[in-house]
């Protein structure tokens, strides 16, 4: 256990470095492929009704975030304009809401889009994993410079069934996994922030399913506008300005 294993330098030249380089290159490739797949989907002109609803939601959201800068009367008037039960902009009749939801489920474009996104993530990962498994399985490729407990053996020495090797030695398959998680930071540097957030967004879209349904978001926006507390900040602002001016005069 205590003695050091001697690793062949050929492992470094033909496994460790190529594996890492390939992981980086595949990440870059994946980024550009997903970019290419995304662009034609955005080009057909969207349904005007959807655009209109989206804009209404954005307007209501602006009202909600800036609510403390307008007087109570103005806020009340706007709130009625958005949320009243007869012709408020955010009010959606019940049967129409159900219709929109049904249309959402039967829309094949949506599912297609999600499939494409998932494929661009899963296919390269499966391929790399198979490649690593085929060429590099069954030997130690690296050593992490800090000790770990036995619990980590399954994680780090995936593919090696020896219980006497020190846990800090890493098999090539596990080195692949380390790369998979650790390179995220590098990608956000070389490809820009959007790549790093991409995965999280995908997760959100999968979780929400039809999270981008404007009719749903109309309802949600209406609810949050209904419960918001109005608190006008500007009267305090005058006092604040007085303080600042006094301070300036004293100088």
């Amino acid at each position: 256990m205590a003695e050091e294993l001697v690793l062949d330098t050929a492992i470094r030249d033909w496994v460790l470095i190529p594996l890492s380089v390939v992981m980086v290159l595949i990440g870059v490739l994946r980024y550009f492929v997903s970019k290419l797949m995304r662009s034609p989907a955005a080009s057909p002109s969207p349904d005007p009704k959807l655009v209109k609803e989206g804009q209404v939601v954005i307007r209501a959201r602006n009202l909600r975030t800036n609510v403390q800068f307008i007087p109570a009367k103005a806020f009340k008037a706007r709130k009625v304009y958005y949320t009243n039960e007869e012709n408020g902009l955010l009010h959606v009749p019940k049967e129409e809401a159900q219709k929109a939801q049904a249309a959402m489920f039967s829309d094949p474009n949506m599912a297609m889009d999600m499939m494409k996104k998932n494929l661009s993530m899963i296919v390269p990962q499966t391929l790399t994993f198979a490649w690593v498994n085929f060429f590099f399985s069954g030997f130690v490729a690296a050593k992490i410079p800090f000790p770990l407990t036995q619990r980590f053996r399954g994680m780090l020495q995936n593919g090696i069934d020896l219980s006497t090797v020190d846990v800090s030695y890493v098999s090539s398959r596990s080195w692949y996994f380390l790369n998979l998680f650790g390179l995220r930071g590098l990608f956000s540097l070389i490809l820009g922030e959007e790549n790093a957030t991409d995965d999280a967004q995908k997760m959100m879209q999968m979780g929400g399913g039809f999270g981008f349904n404007p009719t749903m978001s109309l309802g949600a926006e209406k609810d949050s506008l209904d419960i918001i507390q109005h608190d006008w900040a500007l009267p305090k602002m005058e006092r604040h300005a007085e303080d600042v001016l006094k301070k300036l005069l004293k100088k």
Binding site: P145, L178, F181, G182, R184
Partner: peptide, 8 residues
Amino acid sequence: MSFVLFWT
């Protein structure tokens, strides 16, 4: 995570 990877 990035640190550990590049350190190793």
